[in-house]
Amino acid sequence: MRDTVQAEPQDRGTPDSVASSDHRQSTVNPASSDRPVIIRTVSLKKHYVRNGVVTEALRGVDVAVFGGEFISIMGPSGSGKSTFFNMIGALDRPSSGRVFIDEVDVAQLTAEELAYLRCHRIGYIFQTYNLIQYMTALENVTTPMAFGGLMPDQARERGMHLLELVGLKDRWTHRPIEMSGGQQQRVAIARSLSNRPTILLCDEPTANLDLHTGQEILDILQRLNRSERVTVVCATHDHRTMDMCDRLMWIRDGRLERLARREEVRVKVGSIE
């Protein structure tokens, strides 16, 4: 395992071969192929067994996400969108197939290394915010830093900076229960950024918010993507997301239905072609 990790920087020099092999599956990414692949899945499958009934959530998905891009995952509910999200975030174990995060096979990592990966490299934003209820906004933001080994005073400083970034500096003492949904989601974004992640994974970040607040959240995400070059993967129903993403990905019945750059998709009011 350790060998793979150490050999990994050299591997980064050859993403082209990976990208070209990917090229066959995803028809539309010529413009992106010069960028390194940061997430790659190979025939990813997942089924759930409950009470003896097998539900196929993913039936083999091959996708490559490039560093620094903003990609939206679209699809009706029950399409396997969230499952896919969990797989690429190393939050769940695939039934078969592989997930590579920066060319490291997630299945090969130990529990400790997984914790490190989740802590330092990926930021998660959930539909239900998932803040720790008994912690204040600042504590919620600094907890991942504590897990990451940052000293408390440094963590506090950075936490306040992040809260300022999402416009909640004056509410740092508030607990989640004392904040609105939009504010909670903004705290969640600040939290997801606490250890400077390379990847930001968002699972329907705007689904529980009204139009205006949702727009604010999306603006923050776009700003992060543009200025900090954070890779954003966003599973969503929200059509506004399409307006700001680089690529769109449709999942239906556990399969990759379509993958397209934004320019290729024509957006009409109320419907998509």
């Binding site: 560093g67 490291v104 990592l109 290394e113 490299r121 990451g148 390379t198 890779t231």
Partner: peptide
């Protein structure tokens, strides 16, 4: 864009853990 390097996770001091526990109980 920085490369992803994977190492072992840092360990938390007992005092921090105690505080998290106490907050949870409170």
């Amino acid at each position: 864009m920085k490369p992803i390097r994977i190492a072992d996770q840092a360990r938390l001091g007992l005092r921090r853990v105690c505080r998290i526990t106490a907050d949870g109980i409170r």
